[in-house]
Every structure is written in C-alpha cells, then in structure tokens.
C-alpha cells in the first residue's frame, strides 16, 4: 500500500519535475543565459512578482476579515457567503477570467466603461490581473484561519474586552497573535498559488508581451515558439519558488503545533 502511494506520487509529480530540471540543465546554464537576457522574460517575472504581492496583501487583509466575520458573527446569508468563498476552488480559472471580463471590460463590461471614463483601466491592465489573482487565491487564507479561530474560541477576546480593550486592541493584541501561524501559512499558500496562476491571467491580461505578460504566460509562449530551453529555465524558476514555499510551510508547521 505504501509502495503504491509512493509510486503514484512519483509518477505523477516526482518524475515530471525531475525531468524538467534535467532538461533545464541539459546544456548547462546556457538556456538560463538566453532566457534572462531576454527583457521580456525578466519583465514577465517582475510582473508576476508584483501582481502576486499585491494579490497576497489584499487577500490577507480580506481573508482575515472574512474569517473573523464567518466565525465570530451571526448574520443572514452567512452560509451563502461561506459557499461563495469556496467557489474559486471549484471554478476553472479560465471561467473566472471570462467572468471578470464580462463585468469589467472597457468595451462591453457592465462596470468597465464607467471606470475607464474615470481613467481606471481594469482589463488588460494590472488592476484586472490583481483581481483575477485575488479571486483564485481567495479561499486559501480564509480556510486556514477559520478552523484556528473556531478552535481558540472567543474566551480570550471576551476576557480582553472585560479588561477594557476596545475592538482594535482586541484584534491587535489577542486575535492576531493567536492566529499568526495560520495567517502565515495561508499567505505562503496564496503566494504559491498567485505566482503560478495562468488561466485567469491569460484572459484578463491580454498576454501583451513586455507589458502584462506574466512568467507562466511566458513559459507557454516560449514553448509554443520552440524556445523550449528558455521555457524550461523560466519553469525551473517557478518550481524553485514553489519548493521554497513548501519548505517555509513545513518549517512553520512544527511551530504551529507546539504553540
């Protein structure tokens, strides 16, 4: 049974990743040289990092807020909200991209034209890309924080309030320290998810080389243009970041269980 599980993971994940790394270094560092001397590639990596950081920052704030809302308050429509938060998990990112287009596109979206009239171009621009990334990574922080909030209960928060703390002080001194590791965990997961987002961004960004093209989109383009070496090199960078994320998470895990 153990062997079967190992074999399954190896053939599904391990082997392809190892092959990818092998291919990347097949000609030493030359494909890296090629890839990173291309300004479009470096620009794409920067765009990816920028979009991801924004999306993660926004998702962290709203994720913690939503988690608090879901756990600590009773209101009509709570279950509906909870279901909506999980929606991105079950929706294809391409569909998410299309849905955002329908609402925010400057040409035929419902919100797009009025926003563009005020100088805010959403689609084929950073705001739309950040929104798409936020959308796909939305559940990650919320679903990490909710169980921890449920577990700690609101005793400590009530105690703090009875000792004279106001809402901000309770949040800053009691709630946030208690859910700290869950938040960090959620942030790392959403970062990994955001960096690798492809489908939704492909639609929403317009895939404009040197402008709105992100790293995963570069990989596809290079691959389709038979510049496979460069595609592998950029892929390797993305894999490396994912591995780092997993490392950070696994280093954090024991701390979480100790506290």
């Amino acid at each position: 049974m153990r062997l079967l599980a190992l074999a399954y993971v190896f053939f599904l994940v391990g082997w392809p990743v190892i092959t990818l790394v092998q291919r990347t270094f097949a000609d030493g560092w030359s494909s890296f040289g090629q890839a990173f001397s291309d300004p479009d590639v470096t620009h794409a990596l920067l765009v990816t990092v920028e979009i991801s950081l924004w999306a993660v920052a926004i998702n962290t704030v709203f994720g913690v807020g939503l988690a608090l809302l879901l756990v600590r308050y009773e209101f009509p429509g709570k279950r509906l909200l909870s279901a909506f938060i999980d929606l991105p998990m079950s929706m294809s990112p391409v569909v998410i991209g299309l849905a955002l287009m329908l609402v925010y596109s400057g040409r035929y979206g419902w919100f797009g034209p009025p926003l563009e009239a005020h100088g805010l171009v959403v689609i084929f621009n950073s705001p739309g890309m950040i929104m798409a990334t936020c959308f796909v990574a939305l559940p990650l922080v919320v679903r990490e924080v909710v169980p921890v909030l449920e577990e700690i209960g609101d005793d400590q928060e009530q105690a703090a309030r009875s000792l004279g703390a106001n809402a901000v002080q309770v949040l800053r001194r009691i709630t946030l320290p208690a859910i700290k590791w869950a938040v960090v965990y959620g942030v790392v997961l959403s970062l990994a998810r955001s960096l690798g987002e492809f489908g939704a961004l492909k639609i929403v960004s317009g895939n404009l080389t040197g402008q709105t093209q992100t790293a995963p989109l570069v990989v596809e383009q290079k691959y389709n243009n038979f510049a496979q070496g460069e595609a592998y090199a950029v892929s390797f960078v993305l894999v490396l970041i994912s591995v780092l994320c997993i490392l950070v998470v696994s280093l954090l895990r024991p701390k979480e269980s100790r506290s």
């Binding site: 005793d155 400590q156 009530q158 309030r161 009875s162 700290k180 506290s259």
Partner: peptide, 20 residues
Amino acid sequence: MSPRKRNVGFVFQHYAVFKH
C-alpha cells in the same frame, strides 16, 4: 454600557488565559 467601560473583573470557568 459596553463591558470595557463597566470596570468589572471577569474570571472565566476555563481561565481564558492569553496563551501567547
């Protein structure tokens, strides 16, 4: 009045200690 303005001390059955 909100609990923080009442100037009462409250001790909970399960202590409600600030764990961190």
